[in-house]
Nucleic acid binder design. Sequence first.
DNA 1: CCGATATTTCAGTATTTACAGAAATTATCA
DNA 2: TGATAATTTCTGTAAATACTGAAATATCGG
Lengths: 174, 174
Amino acid sequence: MKLTPIMEKYILHWGEMGTRWGVNRTVAQIHALLYLSPKPLNAEEISETLGVARSNVSTSLKELMSWGLVKVSHVLGDRRDHFESMKDLWEIFTRVVEERKKREIDPTLTLLRQCELEAAEDTRTPEEIKQRINRMREFLETLSGWYEQMSTVPKPTLAKLMKLGGKVTKILGK
Amino acid sequence: MKLTPIMEKYILHWGEMGTRWGVNRTVAQIHALLYLSPKPLNAEEISETLGVARSNVSTSLKELMSWGLVKVSHVLGDRRDHFESMKDLWEIFTRVVEERKKREIDPTLTLLRQCELEAAEDTRTPEEIKQRINRMREFLETLSGWYEQMSTVPKPTLAKLMKLGGKVTKILGK
DNA sequence: CCGATATTTCAGTATTTACAGAAATTATCA
DNA sequence: TGATAATTTCTGTAAATACTGAAATATCGG
């Protein structure tokens, strides 16, 4: 697959953004490429297009699949695996949020609760500090609970809600 | 400042989380320490408590201040700068979102718009790919616009809205 | 304005992370 | 079943990032 300058610019930028959010550059670039690509690509094509080692592509695709952002597809008469990205941006977005919640927020909540348990027996930690931990736990729980509720709302409704923006408060303001 | 086991656990975990979100481990640890600390700390204390070089603390504090998460304060009769973290978690949260928007989302939007301009003259990029870029731009604009509106809503209202969660759709559902 | 203390900058080093290429494994087709 | 193609795993290397300690700079009190 030959990249036009626009595609190249897009992909490079996406790679850059990835690193800022703790995502490996190659992983992000592959995701960008597959998002743009009109048809599923095989690993070899990806490797050549982006100029990275075949093995690196393999690892990165596994990573993207573990996030549920990319899935394997097959082309008739071709043995090789092909890969395609989710295309719906709402889907992609919620997938990423969902996964980060699972991988990062939930374990953090577990740890915070554990801290609170230990705090009960701990006389050396000042009360004020214990409360800070408490508040953080509460905050993350609120956020987490909100997300869980919102994730059940159908996408189109969600989109409308967003368009409403701050106006919801006016409508609800009674 | 002597850390109790609970504090240590909290700070180490926070450092870990930082790295996952593209934040330097030391920066995240310092932020955690200052969040817990009942009183402002000077750089020397931070350095000793976390076991990192004084210079490293200096750089990291500058970083935290550039995010607006930490500010300098002074203790009477002490020449040294002291540092304290924002304590309100809503404030911290919106600060981080605000700053990431400014640093990452806005520049991305600029780039996407530029791509669209160039796309007009570009006959080599397939129409389908141009549309993908379009959709991404639209999506980020929606998100961005929503955030901007929400950021004007007072914090307590926001908190109530969150507690409502998915129920808003039911209330609005007419 | 001088000396002392505090802070920042910077250059070199260490650590971590990403990556390539080879080797091993797995799958597919004749 | 054997040959070939496709994919993954693994090990060593390269690149990026974080960090230290020393030197330079700035700040403050007298």
